[in-house]
Design a protein around this nucleic acid. Sequence first.
DNA 1: GTAGGGTTATCG
DNA 2: CGATAACCCTAC
Length: 224
Amino acid sequence: MEQPEITYCSPEMEQTGLFWMPMQQAEQGLDGLLGDLELSLENGTACRLQMENYRARDDDAVLILKLLEEPRDEADLDEWLSVSIAGGLHPSLCHQQMECRKSGRRGARKRRTSPWDTLFFRDIPSQRSGGYIRRNNSHWTSKEVKLLVQGVSKFGVGRWSQLKKNYFKTSVRTAVNLKDKWRNLLRAYKGNVQKYTLLELEPPLVEQIRKLGAKHPYPKQRHS
DNA sequence: GTAGGGTTATCG
DNA sequence: CGATAACCCTAC
């Protein structure tokens, strides 16, 4: 596998262990689990990265990648980093115009807000309302949904951290995210017909969601 | 750690 | 611009 060109960002970024990467080169990751991307090193070992699509959009996309686990040979890792890192680049310089469209309907657009705004764009006045910073803004892939449904059918509804541990270990999704997504799925497919759904799911999967939803009522009750 | 109400970005 | 999806807040 061709070694991807990875640009290492600002010094502040260094501490976070995050990388930026042109979307085209991580395209395979788009259809996979958000968060999982495997890179082959020259010596044959693999190096796993976490993909986070903050700031990733359709046409000028940059992905942030986080090193998940070290390659077995640490010397290889060092070499790999020294080869890949350009160093000191401001993220805005990393932005590239490139076509990155999924076939069929337009891929979900990514939100622009990111927790790194304060890191990179300190000078830009933050006009966030609500008093908090949204941490992740990425739409779920059908693979993720499949995993979630699989997990719910195995562990039941409500054991989100268990599910996280077993099915979303390296994913950016938190246990709360899983819970919220399940609620959204039920809202989308249970009884009431929505006007539209963002993500087209295969009928069998929808059927499975319906059945699980009927089996384990959720949400249960409302508390004021 | 989870349930469920609230909030906001993005889609159609 | 209304609806939906993703996310946040927080009582328990």
